[in-house]
Each structure stands twice: as structure tokens, then as C-alpha cells.
């Protein structure tokens, strides 16, 4: 019973903060709501018995990816003029297609929940189980992801290096 109450609380927070994240015109505020929404989904992961996924959600999404988003916003120096532009962009007709997709998802999840299968509070999946799966049957996916990351790293290094050498030639 307590688990259900906690779940609905976290789900409610996640829902409201996601809606706020979409509707805010100030980019910083929108990002803070998005971070709160990610933290709420981490709690939901923990409640359904996936503590490893929960903590990854915090470390990677909330702790690293969103930090980069905030970093970009800092570089862009958004001003009140930017907020005015956002106001113009957020027209009601922009909402038609996203609202349609959301309705479909809502119908889907209502159907799943109404079937009454025990979807919530599954069995506990510890970090060891996740690791064994990742480096067992899914090792190919892990390797492909690591190659992708390596390519990104080398690319970023190449771009940064060219800029640095140009800078050195200019100064010398």
C-alpha cells in the first residue's frame, strides 16, 4: 500500500514537472523541471525493483547529460528577447501532433493497467544481474555502443586539436 502511494506520488511529480518542462518559456526553468522529472523517474525505477537503473538515471541523465544541457544554455546567453521568441513559438497549434501521440500512449498504458497483470513491484534486479546480462547475451550491443562513444571521442579531440594548433600558430 505504501509502495503504491510512493509510486503515485513520484509519478505525479514526474508528470507535472515534465509538463512544466515543456511549457516554460525560460530555458533554465524548463531544464530544472526536466531534472526533477528524471529524478522522479529514478524513484519509480527504484520502486519497481531496479535500483541499478535508478541510480544510473541519476548519475548519467541527471548528473551528466543535463549538466551539458545547462552548459550549453550558459554559453548561449539567453535573454528576455529569447523568451519573447519562445512565446511566439509556443502556439496552440504546435500542440496537435504531440498531444495525439500522448493520447495514444495514454490509451496504451490504460489498456495495460486495466488488464490487471502484476506490472508493478516486479522482482528485484540487482547490479550484478544487470552486469551479467550486459556482458553475457548483450555483449555485442555493449561493444557497438563503446565503438560509437570512441568515435565521438576521437571526433571531438580532432576538432578541438585543430582549433588549438591554429591558436598556437596565431600566437607564435
Amino acid at each position: 500500500m505504501l509502495e503504491l502511494a510512493l509510486f503515485y506520488l513520484a509519478a505525479g511529480i514526474s508528470l507535472v514537472s515534465t509538463i512544466l518542462a515543456v511549457t516554460r518559456v525560460n530555458a533554465t526553468h524548463a531544464l530544472i523541471y526536466l531534472i526533477i522529472s528524471l529524478l522522479a523517474s529514478a524513484i519509480i525505477f527504484y520502486l519497481v525493483g531496479a535500483p541499478f537503473a535508478a541510480v544510473l538515471e541519476v548519475v548519467i541523465y541527471a548528473g551528466a547529460i543535463m549538466v551539458l544541457f545547462v552548459f550549453v544554455i550558459m554559453m548561449l546567453n539567453l535573454s528576455p528577447a529569447g523568451e519573447a521568441i519562445e512565446h511566439r513559438w509556443l502556439q496552440p497549434r504546435m500542440w496537435i501532433i504531440p498531444a495525439l501521440f500522448c493520447t495514444l500512449l495514454l490509451a496504451e498504458i490504460t489498456y495495460m493497467l486495466s488488464r490487471g497483470d502484476n506490472l508493478l513491484m516486479g522482482h528485484m534486479v540487482g547490479p550484478k544481474a544487470v552486469g551479467l546480462e550486459l556482458f553475457g547475451p548483450y555483449v555485442l550491443a555493449v561493444e557497438i555502443a563503446s565503438m560509437l562513444l570512441l568515435a565521438g571521442l576521437v571526433g571531438a579531440f580532432h576538432l578541438g586539436r585543430r582549433y588549438l594548433t591554429e591558436l598556437r600558430e596565431e600566437t607564435s
Binding site: T28, P51, V55, V59
Partner: peptide, 26 residues
């Protein structure tokens, strides 16, 4: 005594970054 205690600690230190960043931005 969490079985993910070390990751929890890392998560919390990574969230502490926001304080400094948002303070500087705001």
C-alpha cells in the same frame, strides 16, 4: 546499506554540480 551505495554516492556528488552551475547562471 544499499547494494548500490557507491553509485548512490556518485549520483549525489554529480547532483551537487547543479548548485554551482545554476548559482553562476542565475
Amino acid at each position: 546499506d544499499l547494494n548500490i551505495a557507491l553509485l548512490f554516492f556518485m549520483g549525489m556528488t554529480s547532483l551537487a554540480v547543479y548548485s554551482v552551475m545554476l548559482g553562476g547562471l542565475a
